[in-house]
Design a protein around this nucleic acid. Structure first.
Lengths: 205, 205
DNA sequence: ATCGGAAACTTTCCACTGTCAACTGTCCAA
DNA sequence: TTGGACAGTTGACAGTGGAAAGTTTCCGAT
């Protein structure tokens, strides 16, 4: 029965998902530059023009993939914050650690998300996913704002510092530019355990 | 006399520099993705295979360009630190501000430097330039180490935090992902002036 | 002075890419 | 039954980077 479906040359059945899965596999193992529309089509067993029906063009496919990644990241961060202890510092660390964890597990996906040149922000799925991810940070920012003094500039600065620190550390790590630093640390120190110390350079009350 | 030189079809004279200059122009105005070996060759008035003599392949050209950028950046940071006041905080801020300034003026170049997939680190010029740039940071790190307590892990964390914060803020800004944050700030606040406040989230003694 | 080779650039070719237009088969609803 | 809409295919096009081989120029050794 399945063979009949397989033999059908014009209805793959779940091509959209298959293409996204293959694209994510390539992007996380060989990197974004190694990905090509034609190669993933081949890997999925379909001709090179098939993806057009589902994604339009390459930036369309990448945008959907990025949207999916953003949704998962937002979910990941959200539960990390929710599960963490009550303190502001604990929650901030939990979120940051969750982000780093995601970056280590899906390096290509994270690179893709921060490469606006390859994405089409007018796609509804991407736009929504970006807003969903922002909302996690914004909610947390509100918390900081409430907990600390109400100087709005200072609050924005703290939020931005946290964001920049997380993004910067992840990017440096993924790009292999922390290797020397990590190698000089005491035996057994991992990128993740060191990140906790780095985060403490920002003081949360 | 010059016309004779110009008419010479086989000796451009300064092709190497011309190619690098054109590549930098494209990269800083249209972005890294818009650059192609053939287009810059055309712009310089030479066939597409000419660059091979000077750079080998595309990653060769990009590596030389990145090396040049790194040298200039290192120089820029070095003088910023040297010129700044005596305090540790002043010097750190001066360096960070210089970095951001460079990022704003040469966004494409900065992106290129942090995209290891396009670079060939075995090229001597690149390797040297990377070490030169690292040295600026390392020297400054030693200063921090001396000025503050001698816990090496804590010192490494502070250095890394500063690095990640600078890199992260620049990357977010270049990618246009700070626009909403900046728009919500008081009138007249620029990305650069706000950066000073962000940097203060890390406390230097 | 010239001869030989190295350096610099051109030409030609190849494999590959993304995008487009035209076609074919399949399924479902009027 | 028939007519689209959907989901693929096929084939062409312009563009890319790279390799190979040919051409022109220069320059140093003899």
């Amino acid at each position: 029965m399945k063979l009949v479906k397989k033999a059908n040359a014009h209805h793959h059945g779940a091509l959209r998902e298959a293409l996204l899965a293959e694209a994510e596999r390539v992007i996380d193992t060989q990197g974004l530059e190694a990905l090509s529309l034609r190669s993933i089509s081949r890997a999925v067993g379909v001709t090179h023009a098939a993806p057009t029906n589902h994604f339009g063009d390459l930036t369309g496919l990448l945008s959907e993939l990025a949207a999916d990644g953003l949704r998962r990241l937002a979910q990941h961060l959200h539960t990390a914050i929710r599960v963490a202890g009550p303190g502001l510092r604990e929650r901030a660390h939990a979120m940051a650690r969750a982000y780093l964890h995601f970056a280590i597990e899906h390096p290509g996906l994270l690179v893709l998300m921060s490469r606006s040149a390859h994405l089409d922000p007018t796609r509804p799925a991407l736009r929504e996913a970006m807003e969903q991810a922002s909302r996690v940070l914004d909610d947390f920012a509100d918390e900081i704002q409430k907990a600390k003094g109400v100087d709005p500039v200072r609050a924005a600065a703290e939020r931005t510092a946290l964001r920049a620190l997380i993004h910067g550390y992840s990017a440096l790590l993924i790009d292999g530019r922390l290797e020397r630093t990590l190698a000089a640390l005491p035996e057994g120190t991992t990128a993740e355990s060191f990140f906790d110390v780095v985060l403490d350079v920002i003081d949360f009350p």
